[in-house]
Simulated assay, not measured.
Amino acid sequence: MTTNYVLDDFDREILRRVQLDARVTGEDIGADIGLSAAAVQRRLKHLRKLGVITAEVAVVNPAAVGQAMTFIVGVELERERVDMLDAFRVAARADPNVQQCYYVTGEADFVLIVTAKDMDDFEVFTRRLLFDNANIRRFTTNVVMARDKVGTVVPV
C-alpha cells in the first residue's frame, strides 16, 4: 500500500461493504453512502491498484468439500537463516493443505492453519511438509474442535 494515501470515510465504508460481500454492486454501495456507482467503481479500482484490496474470493466451508479437520501447527526450525526461512515459506505457500502461514515470535518460528480430510490425510501432510524437511526441529499440533469464529474482515 502506498504510504502517502490516506483512506477517507468513503473508502472505509466501501471497504466495510466489500469485505462482507464482494458481489455487492457499486450502485448499492453508492446509494447507501451518497456516491454515484461510477465514483464507487473508481475508488474500488484505485484501492486495488494501491494493494489495499488484495483479492476478491469466495470463502468455502472446508467441511462442505471434504476437509473436515482443521489443525493449528507450531513449527520450530533447526536454523533461522534467511534462506532456510524463505525455503519453508515457499513450501508452506505451495502446500494445498496449508490455509494460513505466519512467521511468529515465541516458541514456534511458524504457525500454520492446516485442513485435512481426516487424520490419515493429516499424517500424509506432516510427512510431506514437516518430516521430510531436515530443517524442522519439531512441531506441535492442536486439533480444532470447533470453528467458533473464522474471519477475513479487517476493521477499517
Results as ranks from 00 to 15, higher is better:
residue 39 A to M: 06
residue 38 A to Y: 01
residue 108 A to I: 00
residue 20 L to A: 10
residue 130 L to S: 05
residue 97 N to I: 00
residue 118 D to N: 15
residue 4 N to T: 14
residue 93 R to G: 02
residue 35 L to K: 13
residue 127 R to V: 10
residue 136 I to K: 03
residue 35 L to Y: 07
residue 92 A to S: 13
residue 123 E to N: 14
residue 22 A to E: 08
residue 139 F to Q: 05
residue 48 R to V: 10
residue 129 L to I: 02
residue 126 T to D: 06
residue 134 A to D: 13
residue 16 R to N: 11
residue 9 D to V: 12
residue 105 T to I: 04
residue 150 V to R: 09
residue 154 V to H: 09
residue 128 R to A: 13
residue 94 A to I: 01
residue 15 L to K: 07
residue 134 A to G: 02
residue 155 P to A: 11
residue 3 T to A: 13
residue 124 V to K: 12
residue 121 D to F: 01
residue 29 I to V: 15
residue 11 D to K: 07
residue 139 F to P: 07
residue 141 T to W: 09
residue 55 A to M: 08
residue 67 Q to C: 03
residue 145 M to A: 13
residue 118 D to H: 07
residue 137 R to T: 00
residue 140 T to F: 07
residue 152 T to I: 14
residue 107 E to P: 00
residue 92 A to V: 08
residue 10 F to S: 11
residue 33 I to D: 06
residue 39 A to R: 04
residue 23 R to C: 02
residue 135 N to Y: 03
residue 126 T to H: 04
residue 52 V to N: 07
residue 53 I to M: 04
residue 126 T to Y: 04
residue 152 T to N: 11
residue 105 T to F: 12
residue 74 G to V: 00
residue 149 K to D: 00
residue 106 G to K: 11
residue 10 F to N: 15
residue 123 E to M: 11
residue 155 P to N: 08
residue 47 L to T: 04
residue 15 L to Q: 05
residue 142 N to H: 11
residue 33 I to C: 05
residue 105 T to M: 10
residue 138 R to C: 01
residue 97 N to F: 03
residue 17 R to K: 12
residue 31 A to I: 01
residue 154 V to D: 01
residue 116 A to F: 02
residue 142 N to D: 07
residue 51 G to H: 10
residue 1 M to E: 09
residue 128 R to D: 14
residue 105 T to L: 13
residue 45 K to N: 12
residue 98 V to H: 05
residue 58 A to H: 13
